[in-house]
Design a protein around this nucleic acid. Structure first.
Length: 418
DNA sequence: TCTGGGGTCCTAGGACCC
DNA sequence: TCTGGGGTCCTAGGACCC
């Protein structure tokens, strides 16, 4: 059996842990640049106009009228709270698959006690140790566990724990769930299924397998089998090394000139290169893309991307910036108001397997330089030393975060006062 | 006259997730 | 005025190899 543990309205809950004065009040958390709503607590969700990913400017009136409290996103805080939750889950089982920042699969193989009691214990301990509310679903396959978790959240008298351990419970779950409630059935598949009059998870499991395979590929077939109780999706305790590391952020303002975009691009490369070094990998390809604001009706639209191959796969910030800059120059066109630049490192290989290049001299000092660079930034804080390419005018393109909460768990000066 | 068979690698596009 | 960011997996088609 597999337990799926998922935090309720995770970002909003994290904010509320440190603000008891907001308990019982509607709270939302906003995306970068305070653009969209990306999390809302129960009280905020109850106000019907607050939908996920709704642009804030469209519903500002509703927010103000209902005295909704809003926060800019504070990923440092959420990441650290997530770590605490995962650590607690580690006490329950040696096999935990961290699936996202706010949810994990827990292998409950070998648990002899009543599963309802076990799920409740997980829920209560996490709340006691972190202040975060969670839901727990336990079932024989991952897809069913996700479904059980959803039921634990949505059905009031489950007390946030739901177990699928009998055929009867499985059928109850399948009949309760609409197709869109199934993990892995997105908008397109739901539409496709509607066309053949399939609306519930149960109906989906009755569709002939050949149809599913043909229309929804092997991905659909796995879902179909998992819902019928046959486990097809592996349990992955060890996180796999990432295959791509990228970042792309909208600017706080629209930028026309190349120089500022170059700075942002260099800054993003510095960020992803740090992540790359942390997993001891090197990148073979660097992709850079730019785009204008596609929501705008008045601005001329343009977007483009370019991938360049590194002479030798590397994780050296300076070498990566150099190639990224070349790529950027190939796609930048003057006369547009750019909204976003992004970088993506792909072709990631383990550091120790990097193939040299016969025709290029190897530079001896690179490793020491970048090691010192990381050491200084670890010790004295982010961007203490940086490539000059990132410029000194960060304020002109950095993110808007007007309502960010304090970094209660990572900065001494911002500790909560009681 | 008649022109094979078995593969790999790469990319773009589609679909999905949180 | 103002609309997020970071990923994975699968398939088809092109280019290439022996």
């Amino acid at each position: 059996m597999i337990a799926m543990v998922d935090c309720n309205s995770f970002y909003a809950s994290c904010e509320q842990v440190f603000r008891p004065d907001l308990w019982g009040k509607p709270v939302v958390v906003l995306s970068n640049n305070d653009g969209c709503i990306i999390a809302a607590n129960t009280e905020a969700k109850a106000l019907t106009h607050i939908a996920m990913f709704e642009p804030v400017f469209k519903i500002k009136d509703v927010l103000i009228k209902n005295k909704v409290i809003f926060f800019s996103s504070n990923y440092t805080l959420y990441g650290e709270m997530s770590q605490r939750v995962m650590n607690i889950l580690g006490d329950f089982s040696p096999s935990v698959e961290v699936y996202s920042i706010d949810e994990a699969f827990v292998d409950v193989l070998g648990v002899t006690e009543n599963l309802d009691a076990y799920g409740t214990k997980i829920k209560e301990r996490i709340f006691k140790y972190t202040g975060l509310p969670v839901g727990v679903g336990i079932a024989p396959t991952k897809v069913l566990a996700k479904l059980a978790n959803k039921m634990a959240k949505k059905i009031p008298d489950t007390n946030h724990v739901f177990i699928i351990d009998t055929e009867e419970k499985r059928l109850q779950a399948l009949r309760w769930a609409k197709t869109k409630d199934v993990w892995g059935l997105g908008r397109k598949h739901v539409q496709r299924l509607e066309k053949i009059n399939v609306f519930s998870a149960y109906q989906f499991t009755q569709v002939p397998l050949q149809w599913v395979r043909k229309e929804m590929t092997v991905v659909g077939e796995r879902l179909w089998r998992e819902l019928r109780g046959e486990s097809c999706i592996e349990f992955a305790t060890m996180p796999k090394p990432k295959k791509a590391i990228g970042t792309a952020k909208s600017f706080g303002i629209k930028l026309p000139d190349l120089e500022r975009i170059e700075e942002a691009c260099a800054y993003y490369i510095s960020e992803v290169a740090e992540v790359l070094r942390a997993q001891n990998s090197c990148a073979t390809y660097v992709q850079v893309f730019v785009m204008t604001n596609y929501h705008s009706n008045v601005d001329k639209q343009y977007s483009n991307s370019k991938t360049v191959t590194m002479p030798i796969p590397t994780n050296d910030t300076f070498a990566l910036i150099k190639e990224a800059r070349k790529a950027l120059h190939l796609i930048y066109k003057p006369g547009y108001r750019y909204k976003k630049v992004g970088v993506n490192l792909t072709g990631l290989i383990p550091q120790e397997y990097v193939q040299g290049n016969l025709f290029l001299p190897s530079k001896l000092n690179d490793k020491n330089l970048i090691r010192t660079f990381d050491m200084l930034n670890n010790k004295y804080g982010k961007s203490t030393v940086a490539s000059a390419m990132t410029g000194t005018r960060m304020g002109e393109w950095e993110l808007i975060k007007k309502e960010r909460s304090k970094r209660y768990t990572t900065q001494w000066r911002e500790l909560l006062k009681i």
